[in-house]
Design a protein around this nucleic acid. Structure first.
Lengths: 204, 204, 204, 204
DNA sequence: TATGAATGAGATTTCATTCAT
DNA sequence: TATGAATGAAATCTCATTCAT
């Protein structure tokens, strides 16, 4: 048999895995991890219950696989360019907002379980938070060194930025507060970028 | 029977309710809401399973009651004084940190479910986030009016402040990052208060 | 509450345990351990499936409990009298035959699992085989010492006697061989007692 | 196609059947019939799960086929010679011990199921026990006729001999009793052969 | 009001068997 | 004929909730 045949099988397997994962994500998003049943996941993914277990050890592994999927995403649109502080923070906010908007259904069940599952929490911190933060951390570090920014703690400030943006995104996207109805991403950028840049003494 | 008797009964009932609630909180904190069993809650609270249902409709109501309990807490130490911006933000951080540290076991299971249960999310936002934010919102509003602060959006900035502090608290308290080992609340105050005050153009 | 109330509860609990155990034994006997379902056990015992698990850790514990039940039985009718060799072997055969006949439905599923479950095998050997053998072993030992019997290995000969009787009992009771139709316990006694007594050089 | 081709095919088919059967036997021996999975059987036999069903109707048929395989074995080393009683019983014990030792992994799962599956029990009795017993039965019969042995029931005594030896073999081989550590087959022969020969009044 | 045994619906997971390739 | 992915029925076990005492 030609080598393409092997590739074909592998590809099919990968496709099926993703199919199951997306089904799971949909149901997790709607019901939460614990109330999501494998029966509904199977139905949503268009396969039978047993098939889930040909691709994943158990239900929890679906969540872990979702974390790995998320871990591949975030950095893409930001990196490898020569941006001014304003441009960088703007780019980060835009990217994260898009991420939360588009992949929030993947994110929400993961975040929920983080608060109940210590092991998962550590895993997410290593796999997602740290990688997603490191670019900004180093950027701040470099600008402190060059005298552009005040002497702040890059780790703490980076997480402050993440916490600040993420909470606002969440409120906006889940429509928790009617006062956010006419707050757009651009509004957030207008408000949060100067907040942080002034805050760390950055001049553009 | 004399009215005092009724009061006594009511008080007893209230005591028993709290006793159950604290038992539930402990188990929720250890296992998460879904993996916590009513059997273990009863044991932890020192009562029998059936008794839980004399005071609460069902398991979920324990969570709702915990939200109400939390809603009573946060404002206490901050309000009704004449504080400078630095003093206020410092006081807020200190108070919230204490809250997260002391009542994190009440908070964590509630937050976890927020991401899985839309109805609960709205309830928490109304009962906790809005009340906990309003003082700072109005404070910022007032200082904008008096020209002390720049023209910022008080709602958005208040949530930015909450998100920034809360994420840092969580990382610290759950010991997710060894780099937080020698970051104290005071470090956080040193870093975050100037960040926000400079950020909103506040002069102390 | 009076102490009898406590006793009553304990007794009820014991009754329920036995009720479940007998239900399980019936189904095990009919279907074998693995094909017996907890659903059918519950139905046979006249309780709900969940109740099984209030009294037994898991399905396998039902088997273990049956072993313990069997372990209490065998010795009763034989013991502590001054019997001649013929009388003793006759008594043993009669007692064992009765046991296999009356409790064979408890025995069969246990024996079946012995061949598949090493741990269970050891447990049965310690709990049942050894106690059930020791009286005869010591009896043989004593008669060798007094010169009544030849110098034989009491352990090996005792098990030879057990194996010889048990296989014949099984064939008889399960009606595997039509030639056993007119073989009674008395026939077996007539055949097997002299076989062993002559075999070990015993004079009555 | 030439007839040799058909023979070749048939032989291949027979080889494959045996290959599967030995794989099954290994897994049955390790896990017991019910806990053995077709997946593991396939892996052990070096074929795929589906292939099993090209050669056997279902999983149970593997057990039936194993019984047939066993049915071919036992008689070999004993028959068609002119042996004295002592020589014969010695030969039988040696042969059976070897059988249990070498093919115990085939035997154990079969015996286990015998106690759970009535139909299988009857089948094994017809296919294995009766053939394995008949030679000794007739031998005893003949010696009674010639006055060498007492008037005993050959069927019952033969099974007594089988039960006696088999139980001792099992205890020895499964190492259930440390007292069997220095009991060898020769010890068993020394003990059991005189036991039975004296028992049936045989003179050598 | 307190108890805790009983309930039974429902969840996860396993695995013999099928069947398209 | 061989493969192994897919199936889905079925099994064990859990646990929130009820209710007789």
């Amino acid at each position: 048999m030609p080598p393409t045949s092997i590739n074909f099988k592998e590809q099919m397997s990968e496709v099926r895995r993703t199919q199951i994962l997306l089904g799971a994500a949909k149901v997790f998003a709607k019901k939460g991890f614990h109330k999501a049943t494998t029966k509904e996941i199977a139905k949503t993914a268009g396969i039978s219950e047993g098939t889930i277990y040909n691709y994943f050890e158990n239900k929890r592994e679906l969540l872990v696989a979702m974390i790995e999927l998320l871990a591949l995403q975030p950095l893409k649109n930001i990196v490898n360019t020569d941006l001014s502080p304003t441009e960088l923070l703007t780019a980060i906010i835009q990217d994260r907002y898009r991420l939360v908007k588009e992949q929030g259904y993947l994110l929400a069940p993961v975040i929920a379980e983080i608060f109940a599952d210590t092991e998962l929490r550590a895993y997410v911190y290593q796999k997602i938070i740290i990688p997603a933060s490191s670019y900004l951390e180093h950027y701040i570090q470099a600008n402190i060194a060059s005298g552009q920014f005040r002497q702040v703690d890059p780790v703490l400030i980076t997480r402050a930025f993440m916490g600040a943006t993420m909470l606002n995104f969440t409120i906006k996207i889940t429509q928790l507060d009617p006062r956010y109805d006419n707050i757009t991403v651009d509004t957030m950028i207008e408000q949060l970028v100067p907040l942080f840049l002034n805050g760390i003494g950055g001049r553009d």
